[in-house]
Write a protein that binds this DNA or RNA. Structure first.
Length: 480
RNA sequence: GGUCCCAUCGUCUAGUCCGGCCUAGGACGCCAGGUUUUCAUCCUGGUAACACGGGUUCGAAUCCCGUUGGGACCGCCA
C-alpha cells in the first residue's frame, strides 16, 4: 500500500462546505485536517463555498460556516463561491457535449425512480444507462429544456485510486452508469463543479469526508474526459455518535456554533477535534496548542475507522483550557453569560467580579456553567437546614458554632475584610474545637447555601461583612 | 438489494506497513487512596481491549483466507 504523500511543488488543499446547514463539527474536523495539512506543508488553504444548489443555499448559513471556521482559527488563504463561477462550468460543459462525452437525457424523475427500484429488487446495482445517450437533440429547444446533462460513461473495468488514508481503492466503472453532471448548461451539479474547480484552483490534495468516497470514481472519470491531472485523495473517516452511526442531531449538539454558545473554547475544540482520528507520535501529551499540532500533523497517521464524538473528553479538555486562562480573559469571556442571566450589569466592578470568578475558574467545564456556579453570590440563597449540620455533629452544635462565629465576625473591621485576614482570625478558632469541620462546614453552608462550593473565606470576602452576617443570622434561624 | 469502507480497553488511541522488545502502552471516564471543612484542582494506585475461525511461521494484535459485526453511499443534494 503506497500512502506516500507527494508534496512536490507545494500543496494546495481546499475545504468545500455547502451552505445548506450550520457548520457541523464533522465538517469542521475535515476542514481542520485540511488546514493542518496545508500549514504543516507550508501550502495554500483554499475556502470554496459550494452553493450550486441555489434553492437550498442560504447566505445566513454561509455566514454561520465562515464564522465558525474563523472562530476555530482556520483562516484561509483564498476564497471562492461557486455561484459566482457559473461561466467557468458552462465552458467545460459545452466542451464535453461537443466532444460527445456528455449528452442530454430527458427521462423524468418518475421514470428514473421506477428504474432504480426495479434494479434494487432484482439485485442489480442501481444505475442509469441512458437510452438517449446517442441521440442528438442539439436543435430541439423544447426537449433540451426538459433535459439534464449526463456524463457518457463508456469506461470498462476498474477505476483505481490511491487514498492517502486507505491505500488502494477501486470501483467498477460500469456500476456508475451515465451519471448526471448538470441540470442544464448553466446549472452544474456537485460532481462536475468540484472537478472543474479542483482543477482550476490547482488543488493537489483532495481531503474530504469518507461519505464522498463513492463520488471519487465519478470525478476521476470527468477529469480524465477533460484530460486533467488527478489530485491525490484522502478520505477522512466520519465522526460518529454514541451508537456508531454518522453524528447527527439526534446525538445532541452538532453545530460548531452551539458548542461556541455553550462556552467551549476554540483552542479546546481545535485540540479535541484534532485528536479524533489522529494522534501525535508522542503518546504522553494530549494537550497541544495549534503550533504543536501543525508541527506534528501527518495525514498518513490519520485513523481509518470512524471516531465517536465523546463529550466527556471534550469537557475535560475544555476545563483544562479554562483553567489556563488569565483571570482577566476568563472574566471577559464569562461576562456575556452573566449579563445574559442578569447577574451583572455595566456598573459591576471588575476587580470584585474577578474575585468571584476566580473562585470558580477551576471548577467549571464550560463557560455557560459559570451562571449556576456564581448565582449564590448575587441572589438570595435557599437551602435545607439539614445541610448546615456537619457530619460528626448535630443541629444544636451547628447553631452554637454559628452564634460564636457571628460574635467573632461582628468584631472584624471592614478595613481588614479579606480572605487572608478572615482565615487568620477564624482558623485558630476552628482549630481550637479539635475538629475544624465543626465550625467551617456550617459557616461555608451558611454563606453559600450549597453542598459543594469554594472555601468559606473566599466567599466571605466577596460577599462583604453585612451580607455574611445576615446569611449567618438566617442560618441560625433555620436551625431553630 | 448493490458498491465501497472499517474492526485493539466503555471512549479517543499507541503498536500493524518492516512478525519476536506486547505478561498490549498512553489519555478520557470510572473506582480506591492521599491532600482539603465540602467540591474542584493536584498526587498515587487500580479497572478494562487485540471480534471470531482457519492458515503461514520456531513465534502473529501484527501476514494470508474466510466468517461475523458495524458504517457510508446508491438524487435533476452536496
Amino acid at each position: 500500500m503506497d500512502k506516500s504523500v507527494n508534496t512536490k511543488g507545494g500543496v494546495r488543499v481546499r475545504m468545500a462546505p455547502s451552505p445548506t446547514g450550520t457548520l457541523h463539527v464533522g465538517t469542521a474536523r475535515t476542514a481542520l485536517f485540511n488546514y493542518l495539512f496545508a500549514r504543516h506543508h507550508k501550502g495554500t488553504y483554499v475556502m470554496r463555498i459550494e452553493d450550486t444548489d441555489r434553492e437550498r443555499s442560504d447566505k445566513k448559513l454561509e455566514e454561520n460556516i465562515t464564522e465558525g471556521l474563523k472562530w476555530l482559527g482556520l483562516e484561509w488563504d483564498e476564497f471562492y463561491r461557486q455561484s459566482e463561477r457559473m461561466g467557468v462550468y458552462e465552458q467545460y460543459l459545452r466542451k464535453l457535449l461537443e466532444e460527445d462525452k456528455a449528452f442530454y437525457c430527458w427521462h423524468t424523475k418518475d421514470e428514473l425512480q421506477v428504474e432504480r427500484e426495479k434494479q434494487m429488487k432484482s439485485k442489480e446495482a442501481p444505475r442509469h444507462i441512458c437510452s438517449y445517450r446517442d441521440e442528438d437533440i442539439r436543435d430541439e429547444k423544447e426537449k433540451i429544456k426538459r433535459s439534464i446533462i449526463r456524463f457518457k460513461n463508456n469506461t470498462r473495468g476498474d477505476i483505481e485510486f490511491t487514498d492517502l488514508v486507505r491505500g488502494k481503492v477501486k470501483f467498477d466503472a460500469q456500476n456508475l452508469g451515465d451519471f448526471s453532471i448538470a441540470r442544464s448548461i448553466n446549472d452544474p451539479l456537485y460532481n462536475f463543479a468540484v472537478v472543474v474547480d479542483d482543477n482550476e484552483m490547482q488543488i493537489t490534495h483532495v481531503m474530504r469526508g469518507e461519505d464522498h468516497i463513492s463520488n471519487t470514481p465519478r470525478q476521476i472519470l470527468i477529469l480524465e474526459a477533460l484530460n486533467w491531472e488527478r489530485p491525490q485523495y484522502a478520505h477522512i473517516p466520519l465522526l460518529l455518535g454514541s451508537d456508531k452511526s454518522k453524528l447527527s442531531k439526534r446525538h445532541g449538539a452538532t453545530s460548531v456554533s452551539e458548542y461556541k454558545d455553550m462556552g467551549y473554547l476554540p483552542a479546546a475544540m481545535f485540540n479535541f477535534l484534532a485528536l479524533l482520528g489522529w494522534h501525535p507520535k508522542d503518546d504522553e501529551k494530549e494537550i497541544m496548542n495549534k503550533e504543536q499540532i501543525i508541527e506534528e500533523f501527518m495525514i498518513s497517521d490519520v485513523q481509518q475507522s470512524g471516531a465517536i464524538f465523546d463529550i466527556e473528553k471534550l469537557n475535560w479538555m475544555n476545563a483544562n483550557y479554562i483553567r489556563s486562562l488569565k483571570l482577566k480573559e476568563f472574566r471577559q469571556l464569562c461576562m456575556p453569560y452573566l449579563e445574559n442571566a442578569n447577574l451583572i450589569d455595566k456598573k459591576t466592578d471588575n476587580d470584585w467580579l474577578e474575585k468571584i470568578l476566580g473562585m470558580e475558574q477551576e471548577r467549571i467545564k464550560k463557560l455557560s456553567d459559570i451562571v449556576d456556579a456564581v448565582k449564590f453570590i448575587f441572589e438570595d440563597i435557599n437551602y435545607n437546614s439539614e445541610l448546615l449540620i456537619w457530619r460528626k455533629s448535630d443541629k444544636k452544635d451547628a447553631a452554637e458554632q454559628l452564634r460564636e462565629l457571628n460574635a467573632i465576625i461582628e468584631k472584624i473591621d471592614e478595613k481588614n475584610w479579606n480572605k487572608d485576614e478572615l482565615e487568620k482570625i477564624i482558623m485558630p478558632h476552628a482549630q481550637e474545637k479539635g475538629d475544624r469541620g465543626r465550625v467551617l462546614w456550617p459557616l461555608r453552608v451558611a454563606v453559600s447555601g450549597k453542598k459543594a462550593s469554594p472555601g468559606p473565606f473566599e466567599i466571605m470576602e466577596v460577599l462583604k461583612k453585612k451580607k455574611v452576617l445576615s446569611r449567618i443570622d438566617n442560618a441560625i434561624k433555620k436551625l431553630q
